[in-house]
């Protein structure tokens, strides 16, 4: 277990940086969200569904395109990889049969990068898709887990931690199952999607270390999932009261 002094910013191993999420910021976009984890800030905008799919995409299903905008400079190999990962992640959580032969564009603008950039972008994109009213199977929540030299695991890495660590993983999980029906508990048979959506690892990580990251990540994602759900519900209730 990482001690308090193990981390530069004074957090303990399981502690996440302060989370903030705001939606409906851009007027021209069909949906937008700003997600921040400490000094890592990402703005995501959703445009669509637009008519037609690109060459190579299945026209019988909805398709997605992700455009990554770095804070400064040109888009590189790393950003191209992030685009691909983000696209596949979002396609796996959206209902693709609802609007066949359409394309939804997600523009990801990096505002600040202090580590855990891809998880932050995934969380922002997910909130933006909700804001745009795109039908989704479930929400996706992402977290970064790092494996230290002595084998302990830390969550929500900063940039300096990512550079120093032996290995780290970006993990994406579906939001924790929840029922809105009172007095009806979720039975074990209900096929609410569990497991992992996306996993990206860097460095050499033993299998036991990876599974430790998974377990710690699930617990952290439950907290992020609850924050995201509260944030979405709060802003939805604000929207409906404003409309009334």
């Amino acid at each position: 277990m990482g001690k308090m002094e193990d981390r530069i910013d004074g957090r303990n191993a399981n502690q996440l940086r302060p989370l903030a999420c705001s939606r409906n910021l851009l007027h021209r976009a069909h949906g937008s969200a700003r997600w921040s984890q400490g000094n890592t800030i990402v703005l995501a905008a959703v445009y669509g569904p637009k008519a037609g799919t690109k060459k190579g995409e299945n026209p019988e299903k909805a398709s997605f395109e992700v455009i990554w905008k770095p804070k400064t400079g040109q888009i590189g190999k790393q950003e191209r990889e992030y685009e691909m990962i983000l696209k596949r992640t979002l396609q796996s959580i959206c209902l693709l049969n609802v609007h066949p032969n359409t394309t939804t564009s997600i523009i990801v603008q990096v505002v600040g990068d202090d580590g855990s950039l891809l998880p932050c972008a995934i969380n922002a994109s997910c909130a933006a898709l909700v804001d745009a009213g795109i039908p989704m199977k479930n929400l996706a929540v992402a977290i970064s887990c790092g494996l230290m030299e002595e084998g302990s695991i830390i969550l929500d890495l900063t940039k300096s931690e990512e550079e120093k660590l032996k290995a780290f993983a970006y993990l994406v999980f579906p939001n924790s199952p929840l029922t809105v029906i009172p007095k009806v508990p979720l039975s074990k048979e209900q096929p609410i999607e569990q497991g992992i959506i996306t996993s990206v690892t860097r460095g050499a990580m033993p299998v036991s270390g990876y599974f430790d990251c998974m377990n710690r990540g699930v617990a952290a994602c439950a907290a992020i999932s609850e924050f995201l759900r509260r944030s979405l519900q709060k802003q939805s209730s604000d929207d409906t009261s404003r409309a009334a």
């Binding site: 199977k137 929400l139 029922t179 809105v180 519900q233």
Partner: peptide
């Protein structure tokens, strides 16, 4: 039960 809680906000993936 649903009638009682009809105003409750839901998010994607929640069991209805």
């Amino acid at each position: 039960g649903a009638g009682e809680e009809a105003d409750e906000l839901v998010t994607p993936g929640e069991f209805l």
